[in-house]
Design a binder for these strands. Structure first.
Length: 834
RNA sequence: GCGAAAGUGGCGGAACUGGCAGACGCGCCGGACUUAGGAUCCGGUAGCCGCAAGGCUAUGGGGGUUCGACUCCCCCCUUUCGCACCA
């Protein structure tokens, strides 16, 4: 018997797959398609097992689906633009392209050594012009439709990375990448109008039945829809008014003041009219400085000051004071709110602090109007209106409808919807990204680069100073252009796009990766997309996954794709921890896949990562667990070798099951067949339906254990050989998604030609899988007292009779009265005695 | 503070619609085979009591529903992850 040498098998079969292009595919309308995708990789240099876990999960699914007869697209690519390469270039002087392409070559080798079944012919790299030109093409389409626009705005600025961050990239007031506290800065920026799709993106989340609820919740919260009303408070002593947004117009009779955020435009007007304009402005700029970053370090105290101006509450006709408050957000709603201290905790604290009036306007449906002086906190609950003019006695919900209608009728407001989601700022003052294909002409304004001049290539030479200005601005031959409209001298846009643009549509490009006429042929995308199975880390639950859903809608509205949701089934895999911590170079706890490959081969690593826990769970890496998987593969190898001769000769290596006369088998042979077919049932269910790879592996381990016992005690007849061959061949096919190299080798040694690419996933015979007799526990007063053996089809009466007659049970029934018998068919008999 | 998920042996985990808790693996203990084994094969392994048959206790804690609860309901504790002045 040859020994098990996994490293040799890795080399042999990886070469075989490459030579035969086993995993390359074309559209084939005669076969059902399956698009299996893992989030592509940022080429940081080295893959660690945490990354690799994701690719193995996807590979198990892809290989399963191939065996099930699907035409499987399983591609891979590189999210190759981004700051780390540019930052490294500032330090090392090595050009980002050089380092990035080098990293890609290395990591590609790592993935190939793991035997991941990618269609490498479709590999894409976002930093190459044949990819990013289509970012530019799409940008122009979006510009033409008003979905890309430019405006001056206060942006999140990371002073370390020297660039703008999208709201989604600000985590706890700090840069998501380097953790530096984010500053606010006013800049001319390009935006994508994702808010145009806010309602669509939100509403469609209900249809994403195969997404984790956690991710959907996060997206819903992020989009943050609020239904309410915009109401105008006319200024008492000046022309104009203040619009506020409220979700509780039913409390408007309790609005005893109006609050402006420090960013509100009227603040400047009021400052000019103030008794002490300088002091006014000082306080405003102090509030603005507090903003985001200050708030993260615990609660910032609520404070404000009176502007000296009044507004009119159009429902009470009262003059209410206008204050500036530090807790009112300039960017949300109208940047102003009505102060209802009775129902809003923030307003309550504010009113108590500054002695502003509090008026009770809601009472509980059953109960009395609360005593305002006795309140220690706001009462936000709904109820019935009081002290509310003609609306007294009206329930909150109804009052909101009627008050909104009245506001609309009087022309002082309207029902409206607010979203927390904001437009996506995509300008980056950096080099290593897609150039924004726009030209600034003194005559014509902002003009897109004509399509036939795309791509706007990144110039190879650039200074990596790390200063805050765009590096491209220092390349005159890039900047100085002629205007495509008037032919006059003009300047090229020197900002680049956020790299999240690259990853928002790459999954479509895989369907037609080398098209040099358009981003993709719609027919090809219509065949392959949407992605049937998408896996990656939860850290992308908001950013990447919401942007991709946005882009899918943009392509849909361009008439290029026929669906709205790009990913049908999403799996968020857990992280791999070492010593209780996330792997990172700085912690020195990185597990390098190459080391493991040298030690135990690709299959043991793959198997271990799948066996250790369900895919969504975090796992703690242990070397001993890896050794266990290696040992088990050796066990599979040896049991297969033990039956090889019988299997090859007895079956003629085709359909061994067909030659088996089940009724003529010995009890042991029938038992191992039953185990074989039940294992097929379990593994299929676990891998295909539940994605519980760990229990699929344990089911296969049980079968192997039984096979050893069978081999130990059974006679080696031709009949036994057929039964064993059926078991082992089924096992090998089911194992092949997890341990493809070992499985291919055994398959070949069993006489099969053409590799597992020609094999089919095994099917089970329910009659064989079903046990001939089942052992059913008998409970007396909730405790198991005996066991009876029954046939699967036994009736309740038969089961009850057997249970009552069981010698182990009878002592517990002696001198007692059986008051109740419950029978769970085929599962258990339960008796209550007194 | 709000929201979500999760708490099961020494460890990772299993238990699918409420039906034998601890599958499978790691680790540990023992045996066989061996010059040897850190290879391989076989067996044992939740805790407590008992020579044994067997019994009792156990799924974070406390209640409840049920013939029967890891699973359903209520309260509490802990952990993890999101969001965090969104009017």
């Amino acid at each position: 018997m040859p020994d098990y040498h996994p490293q040799d098998l890795d080399r042999k079969w990886q070469a075989h797959w490459a030579e035969h292009q086993t995993f390359e595919v074309t559209e084939d309308p005669s076969k059902p398609k399956f698009y299996c995708l893992e989030m592509f990789a940022y080429p940081s240099g080295h893959a660690h097992v945490g990354h690799v876990r994701n690719y193995i999960i996807g590979d198990v699914v892809a290989r399963l689906k191939r065996l099930q007869g699907f035409n499987v697209l399983h591609p891979f690519g590189w999210d190759a633009f981004g700051l780390p390469a540019e930052n490294a270039a500032i330090q090392s002087g090595i050009h980002p392209e050089t380092s990035t392409l080098g990293n890609i070559a290395h990591m590609k080798g790592q993935l190939q050594r793991l035997g991941i079944s990618y269609a490498w012919a479709r590999e894409l790299t976002t930093c190459l012009p044949d990819y990013y030109r289509w970012n530019q093409w799409l940008f122009i389409r979006m510009f033409e439709r008003g979905l890309a626009y430019r405006r001056r705005s206060t942006v999140n600025w990371c002073p370390v990375d020297n660039t703008v961050l999208a709201n989604e990239q600000v985590v706890d007031g700090a840069c998501w990448r380097c953790g530096t506290v984010v500053e606010q800065k006013d800049l001319e920026q390009w935006f994508f109008r994702i808010t145009a799709y806010a309602d669509d993106l939100l509403g469609s989340t209900d249809g994403l039945a195969q997404w984790p609820e956690k991710v959907l919740t996060m997206q819903r919260n992020w989009i943050g829809r609020s239904d309410g009303a915009r109401v105008t408070y006319p200024l008492a002593d000046l022309p104009g008014g203040i619009d506020v947004f409220t979700t509780r117009i039913d409390t408007i009779f309790g609005a005893t003041f109006v609050l402006l955020g420090p960013e509100h435009p009227l603040v400047q007007t009021f400052a000019d009219l103030a008794d002490d304009p300088n002091r006014f402005r000082e306080q405003v700029s102090r509030f603005r400085g507090q903003d985001r970053s200050a708030r993260i370090s615990g609660e910032v105290e609520k404070e404000g000051f009176f502007t000296g101006q009044f507004a009119i509450n159009a429902f009470t006709n009262e003059r209410v004071p206008i204050w500036v408050a530090n807790f009112v957000l300039g960017e949300y709603g109208t940047g102003a709110v009505m102060g209802v201290p009775f129902g809003d905790q923030r307003d309550f604290e504010f009113a108590r602090k500054y002695n502003l009036p509090i008026r009770a306007v809601i009472r509980p449906a059953e109960g009395r109007t609360p005593d305002v002086d006795a309140m220690s906190e706001a009462l936000p609950d709904e109820g019935v209106l009081v002290n509310s003019g003609g609306y007294d006695g009206v329930p909150s919900a109804e009052a909101r409808r009627r008050l909104t209608a009245e506001a609309e009728a009087r022309g002082i407001g309207e029902g409206t919807v607010q979203f927390r989601l904001k437009d996506w700022g995509i300008s980056r003052q950096r080099y290593w990204g897609t150039p924004i294909p726009m030209i600034h002409c003194p005559q014509c304004g902002v003009v897109p680069v004509p399509d036939d001049q795309l791509p706007v290539e990144l110039p190879k030479v650039a200074q990596f100073s790390g200063r805050g200005d765009s590096p491209l601005a220092s390349v005159p031959e890039f900047v100085n252009v002629t205007c495509p409209m008037c032919g006059g001298a003009a300047r090229r846009e020197t900002d680049t796009m956020d790299t999240f643009v690259d990853s928002s549509w790459y999954f479509y490009r895989f369907a037609d990766a080398h098209n040099d006429q358009k981003p993709f042929e719609p027919g090809k995308v219509a065949y392959w997309c949407p992605v049937d199975f998408y896996s990656g880390g939860v850290e992308h639950a908001i950013l990447h996954l919401i942007y991709s859903r946005f882009f899918a809608r943009v392509f849909r509205d361009l008439g290029m794709v026929d669906h709205s949701e790009p990913f049908t089934h999403l799996l968020t895999q857990g992280m791999v921890l070492k010593d209780g911590a996330v792997m990172s170079k700085s912690k020195g706890n990185v597990v390098d896949p190459d080391t493991m490959l040298r030690k135990v081969g690709a299959d043991a690593l793959r198997l271990y990562v799948m066996f250790v826990a369900p895919p969504e769970k975090e796992v703690e890496w242990t070397d001993t667990g890896l050794d266990g998987s290696y040992r088990w593969l050796g066990r599979v190898w040896r049991i297969a070798e033990q039956w090889r001769e019988e299997a090859v000769s007895a079956s003629g290596h085709r359909q061994p099951a067909a030659a088996i006369d089940h009724g003529a088998l010995s009890p042991d042979e029938r038992a191992i067949r039953r185990k074989t077919h039940d294992t097929i049932r379990r593994v299929t269910q676990d891998v295909d339906v539940r994605q519980q790879m760990n229990t699929a592996v344990s089911a296969m381990m049980e079968l192997v254990n039984d096979l050893y016992a069978f081999t130990e005690k059974g006679a080696r007849t031709a009949q036994a050989g057929m039964v064993a061959a059926e078991a082992i061949e089924s096992l090998v096919v089911m194992l092949s998604p997890f341990a493809p190299h070992t499985a291919e080798e055994i398959w070949e040694r069993y006489g099969h030609v053409g590799g597992l690419a020609k094999a089919a996933w095994p099917t089970f015979d329910p009659d064989v899988a079903r046990a001939e007799t089942i052992v059913v526990p008998v409970q007396v007063n909730g405790k198991v007292r005996g066991r009876i053996s029954v046939e699967p089809g036994a009736t309740d009466a038969e089961m009850e009779a057997l249970a009552l007659a069981d010698p182990a049970v009878r002592p517990y029934l002696k001198d007692r009265e059986v008051t109740k018998v419950v029978i769970a068919k085929g599962r258990l008999v339960s008796m209550v005695v007194r």
